[in-house]
Structure formats: structure tokens, C-alpha cells
Write a protein that binds this DNA or RNA. Structure first.
Lengths: 186, 186
DNA sequence: CTTGTTTTTTACTTATTAGTAAGTATATTT
DNA sequence: AAATATACTTACTAATAAGTAAAAAACAAG
């Protein structure tokens, strides 16, 4: 695959995760990459196109991570920690997560982008709910309500915490994310 | 105060809470209210101006709610429920909350809007942490980690849940919000 | 070397945006 | 009634947005 295409995808994602979908332009990309406006349109005819591709890329990335963890026989704690680590990294890089960047703008997105984003959120929540369920069955997690509810609470917390961290400026993210994990200890 | 000004403030808030800050325009407001573009600029010279005013209005609204609850001697449960009810209402109206609408766009906001938003988030988190602390002391709440951490987890959950609800389309918000409350039961 | 394909630029268009200067109508005050 | 402030409209500007058609450059294969 074209290196320019990959650079556009990567920079596009960064821009969306820092400025937001409706605040970045093709000019932002072209000027940063030292190419022309039209070159970006060559790879991604429309902005909607680019948005959808970025979400799809992230779905793939998530699927690969899950496969990888399964093949390496990660236990429930390790898998949950892997998810939390993604958010710790995002916080360190001063970025929001993909879901937290696209979701607030959902109404203004192309239909196909909306569809992919929905798919991504459903995938993550289903995976997380199953993980919590399995962990509870094996006695490594402890929580009161349903696994689906707990998955939603945990995922929501992670998503919004990056947004609030950006607002507050300073935030002890390590200890915050640790408290999410601690909450599940039996 | 002018009725037009109030209408602009209200519609502006609705637009931000449905489309997002960077997706709404002064045309959206003027056409909806049947006035001209320049009339909006008359009351709010710049968009930054309007954004800041909307956040300030919401800070005031929050302060009034807290005062009101104190004067009516709401207990800790009632106060927490009042917060959750705001989010249930937002969900019913298919709106995000103010914090969840502005936060993702923080980098693109005017400095004064950023400052007000930060102030708002700090106010809510401080209030919530104190509420949780008091509730725990009185034995009506039960939670493991610090009140500050718990406040952040709860608030994050509420903020992001509205965003995820918009993505997923359907979501049993009542039972979700109930699970947040249940989690605190001794 | 030439033909064909991929990649990129040039040079636009069209639409929308925030914002403004100057004028007008409607009240309010003196 | 005249002066003045308030609440707008008219009619712009300047900037930026996404998107496009056609030409040029870069590259590969026969």
C-alpha cells in the first residue's frame, strides 16, 4: 500500500483525536505532509471517505489485538490491563480515543462512518462484557450488576476520562485508571 | 434581558449539544429564529463569545441547583439522584451534556471558553467528591477508592454514556444509570 | 524508447463561514 | 417634538472549506 496513503491515514487520525472531526481540514493534512490538497483527495475522494477508513482501520487494529491476546493466552486481568494501557498511552500522547473523538460528532458524520463507529463500539462493549463475565465466573473479578452494564460503565469512564483530562490539564491518570481496575478486585 | 438574546443562548446550547461546537453556524441560529446573521452578532459579537456565555449560563444553573438542594435539605442520595436525572433527561431529549459536547473540541475553543469549561468541570467534580465523602461518612454510600477517583469515574460514565447512547441508537439508559447508583449501595 | 499506469500538481469552482460597516425602524427619554 | 439609545437589516468582505478536471510528472513494463 502507498506510503502517502498511510501517512494521510495516520495524520488524519491524529488530527481527529486532537482537534476533532469537524475542526480539521484537508489543508491541515496536505500542508503537514508537504503535498497538495488534491493529492489527499486522490487517496480519499471525500472527507467522509477518510473518516470511515480511519474507523475501519481501528476496528481492524482492535480485532488484531484481541486475536493476539487470545493466541498468547492472556488471562482476564491481562486483557483488561491491555485495554487500560491503550488509554494510558493515549493520555500520555495527549490524544482522545477514536470513539471519544467521533462520537460527539456522530450527527454530522456520513452514514457509513456512523455505521462503522457503531460497529466498533458494539465490538468493544461485547468483548468487554464477555471478558468481565468470564473473569467473574473464574473468580478473578467481582462486581454486582450485569456484565453488560459494568462493561458500559468501564468503557464510558475510559472514553470520557481522556476528554476530561484535556479540560483539566493535569490529572493523575495512572491512579485513576488503577482505581477502575481495583474496583473489580474480589 | 432581551428575549432574542435568550433564544439565541438556548438554541445555541441545543445546537452544540446535538451537532457539536464546530459543526453549528450562526446561520443555523438566524434561520431557525427568523432573524438575520448580523442580529446574532449583535448580541454575541463572535462565536467564541457565544460559546463562553453558554458555559457560564450552565455554571450558574449548576450553582443554583446545588443551592436549591441544600436549602431543601436533600440528603446525599437525593442529590446524586438529581444529577443522574439531568442525564436521564438529556438522554430522553437526545442531547449530550454541555461538558461532553465542549470537551472533545477543547483545543479549538477560545481561551476564555476553555477556562470556563475547566471551571465547570472542577466545580462538578469537587461537589460530587464532597457529596460522596459525606455520604460514605454517614454510611449511606459504600465505595473502595478515594472520593475524588470515584467522583471522576461516575462523572466520566455519565458524560460518555450520552455519547455512546447516540452512537448505539438504542440503550436502556434507565437501567444503566440505576447501575451507577446501585454500585454505591452499602 | 515508448506505451501505459499510477501518483501528484495546477488551477480552478462552489459553498459556507465568521465577521463588519452602514443604514433603518422602533422605542425611550429629555 | 427632538434627541438618543436599542434592536435590528442590508449588503457586503475576506477567509477557508470541500471538491474537481485536466495537465504534468514519475514510474514501470514491453
Amino acid at each position: 500500500m502507498s506510503v502517502t496513503r498511510e501517512k494521510i491515514l495516520e495524520l488524519g487520525e491524529t488530527l481527529i483525536r486532537t482537534k476533532g472531526y469537524n475542526a480539521f481540514s484537508y489543508q491541515d493534512i496536505s500542508s503537514e505532509l508537504g503535498i497538495k490538497n488534491a493529492a489527499v483527495h486522490y487517496y480519499f475522494p471525500s472527507k467522509k471517505n477518510l473518516g470511515t477508513s480511519i474507523v475501519k482501520t481501528n476496528i481492524q487494529r482492535f480485532e488484531e489485538m484481541v486475536e493476539n491476546m487470545e493466541s498468547r493466552q492472556f488471562d482476564e486481568w491481562q486483557q483488561l490491563e491491555a485495554l487500560v494501557k491503550i488509554y494510558i498511552k493515549s493520555h500520555r500522547e495527549k490524544k482522545k480515543c477514536v470513539v471519544g473523538s467521533f462520537s460527539p460528532d456522530i450527527k454530522t458524520l456520513d452514514e457509513s462512518t456512523q455505521k462503522e463507529l457503531k460497529k466498533m463500539v458494539e465490538m468493544i462493549l461485547n468483548w468487554l462484557a464477555k471478558l468481565l463475565e468470564k473473569g467473574r465466573d473464574r473468580g478473578v473479578f467481582s462486581f454486582a450488576d450485569s456484565a453488560e452494564s459494568k462493561a458500559l460503565v468501564i468503557f464510558s469512564s475510559l472514553v470520557a476520562s481522556l476528554q476530561l483530562a484535556a479540560v483539566l490539564g493535569k490529572l493523575d491518570y495512572k491512579s485513576y485508571s488503577q482505581s477502575i481496575l481495583d474496583d473489580l478486585k474480589p
